[in-house]
Nucleic acid binder design. Structure first.
Lengths: 253, 253
DNA sequence: TCGCGGATAAAGTCATACGATAGAAAGAGG
DNA sequence: CCTCTTTCTATCGTATGACTTTATCCGCGA
């Protein structure tokens, strides 16, 4: 199954040939089509597999090896690395996951991480925000209100809202988790969109309450409300995942 | 200044030529020797700069571009990316930071992140640990006790302790933060080592208390104690950083 | 049975060539 | 003198073939 979730900007230029090769390989690895330990097509053989020069292929492999997806050793070949070695928080790796079926465990894990990190981020944002930071958060919130639910602009505004909060923390390493949070939100919105818009209005209220706490510079309140937001989102997402599982089960039966 | 902190295993093979090139470029970027926006040596010029073929150089650039350190645009040149684009949580990027001077802000930021994440990780570990998980944590703790303070084996045992806790969470994305936590610990130990061993025994007690909570499967207790451990470590590290700053100031005066 | 050493296959490195195009320089027009 | 257009060059992207290095495998001999 292919999910049509618009990808966030990644570091991989899809216009370039090596980028397309890297993308293809990455998707094959993440979906499990190429299992861990599997040999990638030999650098000489690939003329048959994919018609591309060794140069482009090798650059793709280097790109992926930097993210821990593959490991190349002379004589033994280039192999798919075990999942433990993957950098699951890398923006590209997260983006590539959208081309695979939604994996419930993975989404739950991401939500768990989000639950640990995002309330703390909101606390810092409330404490440290500048006027410009606040404007950015407010602009994103307006974008969510003023556009129709689940429209592309709305989704982008939602992501921008959370990104703006991370930016306001003034903590660059922490900001590097923003892509993971955004990926989680995208999964969640993708699952919710087909259903109805009840979730959306509820989520809007959650966002408004977080914004309000940040306006008031109340760190603890912002953290608590962000917790509430994430938990609400998690619960509705889990309900939908359960629904999907049932639908699949009934289709089999 | 060059810090002799043993690097954790990275994804970059230093035996390979492209790996050495990538390492050189990365260090130049992270130390600031090559500022954001700077053009990297032209692919043809580099014969003078570093005598290496275009192939190896280009593969190094691809490796770095995957981590957001550089941006290659056709026809306009390969430039150092702004720091916001760097993946600061990437294990390699963290490791390369050890070749630069310790940056107090960066270390504080990492500690902040650690303070958000690690207590939660300890909570999960206490709740979900298997017998094997516990053995791993215990083995690491024994390694800390049985070796002399600040010895290489002791440092590795300390890192292994925290890694084992992340492993016990059974949350792969969360586990990807382990390298960031380990990097923070390495900075902290590097700063503490020259001083004395008071910090070490205090830290040992903190570790023991965390271990005990995990043995008891008490999640809240584990989280609270891990919080205490991180805060203790942060405080002593900040004190040493302040001392360093004074030492530098007095040298100038 | 064990260990040594050569054969071998695969990745790594190099040199070269050509294509495409962004961006600068030069020239035409007002 | 300034602006717009054209040309031109520098630089990255891709392809190819040759050679080097490395680690695995296998067979030989002790």
């Amino acid at each position: 199954m292919r999910l049509h979730v618009q990808a966030r900007p990644t570091r991989l230029n899809p216009d370039r040939l090596f980028g397309q090769v890297a993308h293809r390989l990455a998707v094959a690895i993440i979906t499990g089509a190429s299992p861990a330990g599997a040999l990638l097509p030999n650098e000489d053989d690939l003329k048959g597999e994919i018609s591309v020069s060794r140069t482009a292929y090798r650059e793709a492999v280097k790109f992926l090896s930097g993210k821990g997806l593959v490991e190349a050793k002379p004589k033994s070949g280039t192999r798919v690395a075990p999942r433990e070695a993957w950098n699951l928080l890398d923006p590209d790796v997260l983006a590539w996951h959208f081309e695979a079926d939604p994996n419930e465990k993975f989404i739950r894990d991401l939500f768990e991480l989000r639950l640990f990190v995002e309330p703390s981020a909101a606390r810092l944002a409330a404490q440290r925000r500048s006027a410009a930071d606040l404007q950015r958060v407010e602009a994103a919130y307006r974008g969510m209100v003023e556009n129709p639910p689940y429209a592309e602009r709305t989704v982008n505004a939602d992501l921008a809202f959370h990104e703006a909060i991370f930016a306001a923390t003034r903590n660059p390493p922490l900001q590097c988790l923003a892509p993971a949070v955004c990926a989680t939100i995208q999964w969640s919105l993708f699952l919710k969109a087909p259903d109805d818009r009840f979730f959306f209005t509820a989520s809007l209220i959650d966002h408004e309450r977080v914004l309000e706490a940040i306006v008031q510079r109340d760190g603890e309140l912002a953290a608590a409300r962000m917790s509430g937001l994430v938990i609400d989102s998690l619960n509705s997402t889990l309900r939908l995942l359960a629904g999907r599982a049932e639908a699949i089960a009934s289709k089999i039966a």
